[in-house]
Amino acid sequence: MTQNSSTQALSDAGVSIWLDDLSRKRLETGNLAELLATRNIVGVTTNPSIFQAAISGSDEYDADIARLAGEGKDVDAVIEVLTTDDVRNASDLLKDVYSATGGYDGRVSIEVDPRLAHETEKTIEQAKHLHEVVGRENVMIKIPATEEGLPAITAVIAEGISVNVTLIFSVERYQAVIDAYLTGLEQAAEAGKDLSTIHSVASFFVSRVDTEIDARLDAIGGAAVDLKGKAGVANAQAAFGEYLEAFGSERFEALKAKGANVQRALWASTGVKNPDYSDTLYVDNLIADPTVNTMPEKTLEAAADHSAPAAALSAESAKTGEQVLASVADAGVDLADVFAVLEREGVEKFEKAWNELIETVSASVEAARA
């Protein structure tokens, strides 16, 4: 098998393509292995919604659920086994990529319980626990970028654990995430840890920004509607400007001299919600070296079919993005409120998915014990 030319072009441009999905079926049928061989996939991300869909929508997990129920495990323990087994097996599948890239790629992410999004100490505790349970160097622990999540990010990085920071919507919160990462590296260095083994990505959500802002622009009406479909990319452009500044700073250079890695920007929520927009909008316009784009399979296949990458992100495009955001604000959109709503809804969506997963597994456990 050979790699697709369009996804290869993205990879050559410095974009690491990670699949935003995982299931037992993908692992057992060889689908994930095929995507590694033909679509330049070099990483995998998961979240509560992905696990809920995977476990609730198939019978591949039934035997394990029955076995674990028979062993007397409670529902939370059953879910932990099911999810960490999939992440561990995916990590093993990606270990060659991990080794070949020196830990840069070949990563598989698993998220802390979304119900802990506003509990710092419990997030730290579970992040360390998940890292130990999965037991693979190439696992990344996902921690939400809530205010309570920020100190948890620092603490977990300081422990030498690689982190995928998720649910970032605003440039201001992204700045705080970068600071949390750098502070964690500084603490890790003070503790004598090998900084070269610590990696991190900052997952900046894109399409959800357009969905929320477009609705507000429609409500305003008039010339404001001309700005629809522009805020998501502009927000990411502005964020990449922050990346360039932070990781070109003296503060990071001091850490780099000790072996530290940059915290790459990761474009998440790249599936286009509005059918009027190009289905590769959040791929073609977010090219930069180094970045990660984590794509659901539908977006991945669209990119493989007809991706047409635009110019790479730069300090100049960051200024353009800032200007677009300023225009959106001038049109009457309260951006601070937008980002607060998106963070709250993001946490709530993952909590809802997790609770639905608990209900599904609870029913299966009870049936197995009947």
Rank of each mutant, 00 (worst) to 15 (best):
Glu356Pro: 05
Asp92Gly: 10
Ala353Ser: 15
Ala254Ser: 12
Asp92Met: 09
Phe205Gln: 05
Thr211Tyr: 13
Ala311Val: 14
Arg344Met: 13
Ala254His: 03
Leu93Thr: 02
Ala353His: 08
Met1Arg: 10
Arg88Phe: 03
Val324His: 01
Ala304Ile: 11
Thr280Pro: 13
Gly102Thr: 12
Val81Met: 07
Ala33Met: 04
Ser11His: 15
Ser5Trp: 09
Asn285Val: 09
Arg24Thr: 09
Ser269Phe: 04
Val272Thr: 15
Val328His: 08
Ala37Ile: 01
Leu130Arg: 05
Gly259Tyr: 00
Ala353Met: 08
Asp226Met: 10
Ala145Arg: 04
Gly30Asp: 11
Ala231Trp: 12
Gly184Gln: 07
Lys298Phe: 12
Pro309Ser: 09
Met140Asp: 04
Asn89Thr: 13
Ser207His: 05
Glu28Gly: 06
Gly241Cys: 05
Trp18Met: 03
Ile161His: 02
Ala260Leu: 05
Trp18Thr: 09
Gly72Ile: 05
Val156Trp: 12
Val338Gly: 01
Asp330Ala: 15
Ala77Gln: 15
Arg67Tyr: 07
Ala54Ile: 01
Leu255Val: 00
Phe204Gly: 06
Ala9Ser: 14
Asn164Ala: 11
Ile124Leu: 03
Asn274Tyr: 13
Thr211Trp: 12
Lys228Gln: 15
Glu345Tyr: 02
Val42Leu: 04
Leu335Ser: 08
Ile198Asn: 01
Ala188Tyr: 00
Arg369Val: 14
Leu185Lys: 08
Pro309Trp: 11
Asp218Asn: 10
His131Lys: 14
Thr166Lys: 07
Ile213Ser: 04
Tyr174Lys: 00
Glu250Thr: 13
Thr101Asp: 05
Glu212Trp: 06
Gly229Leu: 04
Ala370Ser: 14
Lys319Tyr: 00
Pro275Tyr: 11
Gly271Gln: 09
Val272Trp: 09
Arg39Cys: 09
Ala246Glu: 08
Val324Pro: 08
Asp179Met: 02
Gly321Ala: 08
Glu343Trp: 07
Ala254Met: 04
Leu93Phe: 11
Ile178Val: 15
Glu125Gly: 10
Asn47Ala: 01
Val233Phe: 05
Arg115Val: 11
Asp92Gln: 13
Ala127Thr: 06
Ala340Phe: 03
Thr146Glu: 09
Gly103Pro: 10
Glu132Ala: 15
Ile198Gln: 02
Lys193Pro: 12
Phe339Ser: 00
His129Glu: 14
Leu195Arg: 00
Arg173Phe: 10
Pro296Ala: 05
Val163Trp: 02
Ala310Thr: 13
Glu186Gly: 06
Gly248Pro: 04
Glu359His: 11
Ala13Gln: 04
Ala100Phe: 02
Leu185Ile: 08
Val42Ile: 13
Ser200Leu: 02
Leu335Pro: 07
Glu172Phe: 12
Ser170Ala: 08
Ser109Cys: 10
Ala326Val: 03
Ala77Pro: 03
Thr183Glu: 15
Ser314Gly: 06
Glu359Thr: 15
Ala370Arg: 13
Lys256Ser: 13
Leu300His: 06
Val341Thr: 15
Leu35Ser: 00
Asp279Arg: 11
Ser314Glu: 06
Lys122Tyr: 06
Gly70Thr: 08
Gly57Glu: 03
Arg24Trp: 07
His199Met: 04
Pro296Val: 15
Arg39His: 15
